[in-house]
Write a protein that binds this DNA or RNA. Sequence first.
RNA 1: CGGAAAGUAGCACAGCUUGGUAGUGCACUGUCUUCGGGAGGCAGGGGUCGUGGGUUCAAAUCCCAUCUUUCCGACCA
Length: 479
Amino acid sequence: MAKNKIKNDAITSRDEDFAQWYTDVCRKAELMDYSSVKGFIIYRPYGYALWEMIQAYMDKRFKDEGHENVYMPMLIPSSLLQREKDHVEGFAPECAVVTKGGLETLEEELVIRPTSETLFCEHYAKVVRSYRDLPKLYNQWCSVVRWEKTTRPFLRGSEFLWQEGHTVHATEEEAREETLKMRDIYNETAKELLAIPMLTGRKTEREKFAGAEETYTIEALMHDGKALQSGTSHYFGTGFARAFGMQFLDKDNKMKYMHQTSWGASTRLLGAIIMVHGDDNGLVLPPRVAPTQVVIIPIQQKKEGILDKAYEVETALKAAGIRVKVDASDKSPGWKFSEAEMRGIPVRVEIGPRDLANGQCVVAKRNDGEKITTPLDDQLPEMVKTLLETIHDEMYAKALAHLESHITTVTKMEEIGAVLDEKGGYVKANWCGDEACEVAIKDAYQATSRCIDEHEEANGVCPVCGKKGKHIVYFARAY
RNA sequence: CGGAAAGUAGCACAGCUUGGUAGUGCACUGUCUUCGGGAGGCAGGGGUCGUGGGUUCAAAUCCCAUCUUUCCGACCA
């Protein structure tokens, strides 16, 4: 049960330079590589496998709730994007535009989708006639392009992979219910799959989605005390419906506008996994999302029986539904240990001559380095399975403790800056509801309002203007 | 988009000031010895010096432009 510390000088230490540590992990764990176009990254097999794990989980959750997958075109006629005023104002500055087709200059410019609301709207306007056609619960997995000025792998890219759900409903009540339901599914995905606790709430007027009536968000707290918006769910009311002529004939024989939602989560979740759980030895993957959950490392693998035993254990673990691999490469064991740690594989099983002689093996946990010597018998698969669940719980508990200890209630303006500089995390404050006060905090401390608490009532005064608070709001420096 | 730094083999870098044969370590290939925390010997392979232009007999080196990356700002569901 001895704990073991190692040093890996290939990665910059987290405390020394968090930003550098992050990019080191992204590259050294072989999650991504840079391409030759600014802001566009290559998702390498390991990074893409991680995304596929997230996709598989969410896709099932969406389908269980009755959603269907569709695929919309990548290009949007510029006139279509301009149909809804707030929406185009929000996205126009970051659109990439196609102006030529072949050798011809296009009559109308085509925007590479920054998001697909307008395409869904146009389609829904066509295919929905009656209340009997509602609701329509569509989702699509795709990539979108937003011409970002500052880019960082997974956190902010000019192109990123995501899913965008778009639904239309006959009533406001049903659409609002959908908006909250999807926010909850994101929250559960974070907790159950990624072992990440989220702060959830509603966005302020200033921070909400371009064209939305309400935006709900899940916000994760990174190890360095900065927040990361990790998924949003929007209620649109009938704003887009009016702009796009999305009407249906209701039961009462009257034409009505559809009530609409959209919701999205992206490869930014990979950034959250890295920055919430990672450590100085690299990535630390939550077991349920890890493409490989267990790596078996044979010691002195050329000796009689070692590799055979390793493969035998692999087969047994596989049969128990565990994602497992044997590292039979001819690297030294020490190298394999470091490699497995860099890649964040939750559990390592060591099998060597000593173990074989004693009928045991060494099981090591990535999250805390604990090593356990355990019998090499038919109980092993169950033992490892239980251990993986334990690791998930430990990782969640650790992240939750970090989140909870980094929410600081403040009442005065000066405290905000002091808290953010000294410990980071969220500053919890009453807010009068005036955008000027929100902006004042941003200008003074580079912290934005992350969300409005949906449960707790205001109970004090706004730290900026001193007027009576309208909401409890969480402010943080964010990625 | 502004400020700063960087780009030479897969990776980390030296060489540039003072122009003159492309270097080192790790990684890679073959082989032997190794193997419980990044092992060692021997023998090898690999580079349009980011890109384009200029100066020069001669440019990795000097000049101009441009692209990409990193950090800090501004901007940003």
